[in-house]
């Protein structure tokens, strides 16, 4: 469980988040909605600890661990998809990574350096990387950017199937199965 209380954040006197309060429960999926620039990414960054809120509190029932899909891919360009996943989760075997990646990607692409993959393929690597990492909270920032409708659906199914008991927070403009999520407006 995670509770955000009166979270506020501004940059250069421009308010991005203003007294945002919300409670997030384990095993539940949340879709953070709002127009571009409203502070969705900032919210995820504050939750993950990458940024500090100007005011407000975040309370967790225990010290959480995070998995994240960032707005940018943040992959190590010279490494292949399997190596990128094992970089953040070294406990995984090559076989496990191959099996999981093959659910979203053509197996022939797995041994290529990620710099040779298309934008959509790279995005799917990021999704698998985040989902396979053991964590308490999943923060997914526009994970479907660059994916066509079919791949978007497959990727979303993959996310839902791998959520387990974790809290899932998703920011996306491109989501079709909206009913799966509890919607939160910023």
């Amino acid at each position: 469980m995670m509770i955000l209380e009166n979270i506020s954040k501004s940059y250069d006197h421009k308010t991005v988040l203003s007294s945002f309060t919300c409670r997030f429960d384990d095993k539940k999926s949340y879709l953070i909605q709002g127009p571009s620039g409203i502070g969705k990414t900032t919210l995820l960054r504050i939750i993950s600890g990458l940024e500090k809120a100007d005011s407000g509190n975040i309370r967790f029932d225990k010290k959480p661990s995070f998995s994240m899909v960032f707005q940018e891919d943040r992959l190590i360009e010279d490494l292949n998809a399997i190596e990128n996943i094992r970089f953040v989760t070294p406990e995984l075997t090559k076989e496990q990574c191959t099996e999981e990646l093959s659910r979203l990607l053509d197996p022939e692409q797995l041994n290529k350096p990620v710099r040779e993959l298309s934008g959509g393929m790279r995005r799917r690597v990021c999704i698998v990387r985040a989902m396979l990492h053991p964590s308490d909270i999943l923060l997914l920032d526009e994970p479907f950017a660059g994916l066509d409708a079919d791949n978007r659906r497959i990727a979303l199914d993959y996310i839902i199937n791998h959520q387990n008991n974790r809290i899932l927070l998703l920011c996306s403009h491109e989501i079709d199965q909206i009913d799966t999520f509890e919607q939160i407006r910023i």
Partner: peptide, 21 residues
Amino acid sequence: IKMLELAEVFEIKPLNKIKVI
């Protein structure tokens, strides 16, 4: 810095961070 943030969020071990990033 973006890769360092990635390492922070995923709690990558210091030695791995030094080696790869």
